[in-house]
Simulated assay, not measured.
Amino acid sequence: MPRNARVTICSGPYESNGVVKHRSRRLQGLQAALRARGHHSVLEETSDWNMVELAVNGEIVFSCNIKQLQFGGDGELDPVCKEAVTAVENAY
């Protein structure tokens, strides 16, 4: 994959403290990890609960439950972020 890929991060709402809504705090580490590797990410809200999908050139290359991502941070110590960045870089 070219170094400057455009990655679409599709995320759905999830429950926290009894309230279900879209939140981006769990996506900060993922965004930082992608940015550190030279990729540009765009957030897109979906209606699928608890879901995060990464799309490159319209193709989904990675998906996980949003609660698997660490809250906040830079993504360097989050193994799910590392797996997601690897999937983006291995995309065609």
Results as ranks from 00 to 15, higher is better:
A84D: 03
I60N: 12
L30N: 00
A5P: 01
L27F: 14
F62P: 01
V85G: 00
S47F: 05
Q68Y: 13
V42E: 15
E59R: 15
K82D: 07
R37W: 02
Q70F: 14
Q28H: 12
P79R: 04
R26K: 15
N17I: 01
R6S: 14
K67E: 11
L54N: 01
Y14C: 06
N65K: 10
I9H: 05
G18M: 11
C10P: 00
K82H: 09
C64K: 03
A87V: 09
V61H: 00
S41R: 06
E76W: 07
H22R: 10
R6L: 11
L43H: 14
R35V: 03
V85Y: 02
L34D: 00
S24T: 15
Q28E: 14
L54M: 08
H40S: 12
I9C: 08
Q31A: 13
V88G: 03
S11P: 00
L77D: 13
C81A: 07
C64E: 02
Y14A: 06
D78V: 04
T8G: 02
I60R: 15
E45W: 12
Y14N: 03
I60M: 12
P79T: 07
N17L: 04
V85E: 02
G73L: 08
Q70M: 13
R26N: 07
D48G: 06
I60D: 07
E83P: 00
K21D: 10
V42Y: 14
E45Q: 15
I9T: 07
G73I: 09
E44P: 02
C10W: 12
W49F: 13
N17H: 13
V52S: 02
S24V: 14
A32D: 06
T8N: 11
V80S: 04
R35E: 11
E53N: 07
S47C: 08
P13W: 09
Q31R: 15
E45H: 13
G72P: 00
R26E: 02
V88P: 00
N65M: 05
A33P: 08
V80M: 07
R37M: 06
K21N: 09
A87D: 08
V19A: 03
I60C: 11
D48P: 00
N65T: 08
R23S: 06
P79V: 07
I60E: 10
C81S: 06
V20G: 00
